Amino acid sequence: MTEKKIKNIFVNGAISSAFIADSIAKHSSKKEIGGHSIFLGQVRADEIEGRLVSAIDYTAYEDVALEQMHKIRAEIFEKYPLTCMHIYQSLGTIKAGEICLFVFTSSSHRKPAMHACEEVVERLKAELPIWGKEIFENGTHQWKENK
């Protein structure tokens, strides 16, 4: 038995709406799918202590994050009857309003796709060494707390 290749979830820059649409369109030929669940994480223009967030600069300990995501992915596939799962996390500076996380799960029925998608997002946020530095309009910055 061969070991499954670890998939790279990281993309440089924001995740475009064209990329998301193309990912969805590619699944129309998979007739066994009855439900998809999609989570899109978007950078918010939060106001913190009178300063407005203009972007977030994402960094990661990539090797460790990919290894951990590989384990999470295997556990999710064991737990839910999924047809497929796609995860994309931005690295670099992502402006407010842009998409920084795209999680897409598919299954024969809606509930496994929905539950799996939510669990993937929660575990990714809690378990992966990915950090965001909030960049404010005035040029200052601070590390973002993962919520």
Score class of each variant (00 low, 15 high):
108 S>P: 02
78 E>W: 05
38 I>M: 15
68 Q>Y: 06
117 C>S: 08
72 I>T: 10
55 A>V: 00
89 Q>N: 15
112 P>C: 06
80 Y>W: 11
111 K>A: 15
74 A>W: 06
117 C>P: 13
92 G>W: 07
126 A>Q: 09
125 K>H: 09
123 R>G: 02
93 T>I: 08
117 C>M: 06
41 G>M: 14
68 Q>F: 01
95 K>G: 10
95 K>M: 15
95 K>I: 05
49 E>I: 09
72 I>P: 09
78 E>V: 03
126 A>Y: 02
121 V>N: 04
96 A>E: 00
124 L>C: 10
56 I>L: 08
121 V>R: 03
67 E>D: 13
49 E>Y: 10
91 L>E: 03
45 A>E: 07
93 T>P: 00
85 M>L: 15
85 M>N: 08
105 T>R: 01
84 C>I: 12
123 R>M: 06
62 E>Y: 01
120 V>Y: 03
97 G>P: 07
83 T>W: 05
99 I>R: 09
111 K>R: 15
127 E>F: 01
53 V>W: 02
74 A>L: 12
118 E>S: 14
52 L>Y: 01
40 L>I: 13
99 I>D: 07
72 I>D: 02
40 L>N: 14
127 E>S: 11
100 C>S: 15
117 C>I: 06
35 G>C: 11
54 S>P: 00
93 T>K: 13
50 G>H: 05
60 A>R: 05
84 C>V: 12
68 Q>C: 02
47 E>T: 14
54 S>L: 03
111 K>H: 15
109 H>W: 06
74 A>C: 08
116 A>H: 11
105 T>D: 05
45 A>D: 01
76 I>C: 01
123 R>Y: 02
37 S>Q: 07
115 H>R: 14
101 L>E: 06
127 E>K: 07
37 S>I: 04
49 E>V: 08
112 P>I: 02
102 F>H: 02
55 A>Q: 03
38 I>P: 10
86 H>I: 15
105 T>A: 08
121 V>A: 09
106 S>L: 06
60 A>N: 03
78 E>Y: 03
45 A>I: 00
126 A>P: 04
40 L>G: 06
111 K>S: 14
82 L>M: 05
122 E>N: 15
102 F>W: 11
109 H>C: 12
101 L>G: 05
118 E>W: 02
87 I>P: 09
65 A>P: 05
99 I>L: 11
74 A>N: 12
54 S>H: 08
106 S>E: 09
78 E>T: 06
96 A>L: 10
112 P>G: 00
52 L>K: 15
98 E>T: 00
121 V>H: 03
55 A>N: 03
64 V>S: 12
65 A>D: 00
111 K>F: 11
94 I>R: 07
81 P>G: 03
74 A>R: 13
96 A>H: 05
109 H>Q: 10
37 S>C: 13
66 L>N: 14
86 H>Y: 07
57 D>C: 11
87 I>Y: 01
123 R>N: 03
59 T>K: 11
108 S>Y: 02
104 F>R: 11
37 S>P: 09
58 Y>P: 01
88 Y>M: 13
48 I>V: 12
115 H>Y: 09
71 K>M: 07
76 I>P: 01
72 I>K: 10
46 D>A: 08
124 L>D: 00
